[in-house]
């Protein structure tokens, strides 16, 4: 895994370097990898500060979005009539592009972290709710039959059967959440902020500090990848009974 990642990264950097050589693009259009690396080192504390802001926003958004998503799925399951009322709101919250809502959120929640956390929460919320709810209601009917014969209560069926059976599905939702959470935070920073990687990139771009912009972009991409694979690993550890099948094995 590590070797593969290293090969891919080296390959991409090489292609990037070749493009710079072949096109002869000036540094303010496409900076060479080395220039970006130098910018990264030279502005380490600056990028570090802005990155920490973005990371806090992403992680807080993830925690909040997942909690609300899990809560909503549970609520819809417990009170089926809620679903008919709830679903349109849920879908509407997703149909509206985050760009469209961002200015309103700035207006209501200010230019600080709160509005960015809200953005991240908003786009995470739906995939988590939908995935968990799907998992909770698609429990194998035979398990439910068995539980009924054994005299189970609704609560224990949820605890021992429905919830664990829904974990793989919730896992899919969490993977999507991990992948899109940075979008929410960075879009929020673009629309209006005074810190964060989105702000730094916008700022650097305006001053033609393309090398700094690229450096910030790479840090953001690196964190996004790290976040995704951590969550992926966590899910695999939790849902240990699920074996993956490949096309070759079938």
């Amino acid at each position: 895994m590590w070797i593969k990642s290293l090969v891919i990264i080296t390959g991409l950097v090489t292609i990037w370097q070749i493009i710079v050589w072949v096109t002869g693009a000036p540094p303010f259009i496409v900076p060479a990898p080395l220039e970006v690396a130098i910018a990264l080192v030279a502005n380490f504390s600056l990028i570090g500060f802005h990155a920490s802001v973005t990371i806090v926003e992403i992680v807080a958004g993830l925690l909040l979005g997942c909690s609300i998503g899990i809560g909503s799925a549970w609520l819809i399951l417990q009170f089926q009539p809620v679903r008919a009322w709830f679903l349109p709101i849920l879908v509407a919250s997703q149909a509206l592009p985050v760009f469209a809502i961002a200015p309103v959120l700035m207006l209501w929640l200010g230019f600080g972290m709160a509005s960015k956390i809200a953005m991240a929460t908003l786009i995470i919320y739906f995939p988590v709710t939908a995935a968990l709810y799907d998992g909770l209601r698609n429990t194998d009917a035979s398990w439910i039959d068995m539980a009924r014969i054994m005299g189970a209560s609704k609560h224990t069926v949820l605890k021992f059967i429905r919830l664990p059976a829904a974990l793989p599905s919730l896992g899919s939702g969490l993977r999507i959440a991990a992948a899109v959470a940075p979008i929410g935070a960075v879009v929020g920073e673009w629309v209006g902020s005074s810190s964060g990687l989105g702000y730094l990139m916008l700022h650097a771009n305006a001053r033609s500090q393309i090398d700094l912009m690229f450096a910030a972009l790479i840090v953001l991409a690196g964190f996004a990848v790290l976040l995704y694979f951590s969550i992926d690993l966590l899910i695999k550890k939790t849902v240990f009974w699920q074996t993956e099948t490949t096309l070759e094995a079938s």
Binding site: S142, W143, D145, M150, A152, Q242
Partner: peptide, 30 residues
């Protein structure tokens, strides 16, 4: 409440250890 059922599928819960799978009835009844 006086019937036990065994199906063609083993219906074991993959997230529970064998011992808990055997005791699932009492777990489900609390």
């Amino acid at each position: 409440g006086r019937v036990a059922w065994m199906a063609q599928q083993d219906l074991l819960l993959p997230w529970l250890k064998v011992i808990d799978n055997v005791m699932i009835g009492s777990l489900l009844r609390g």
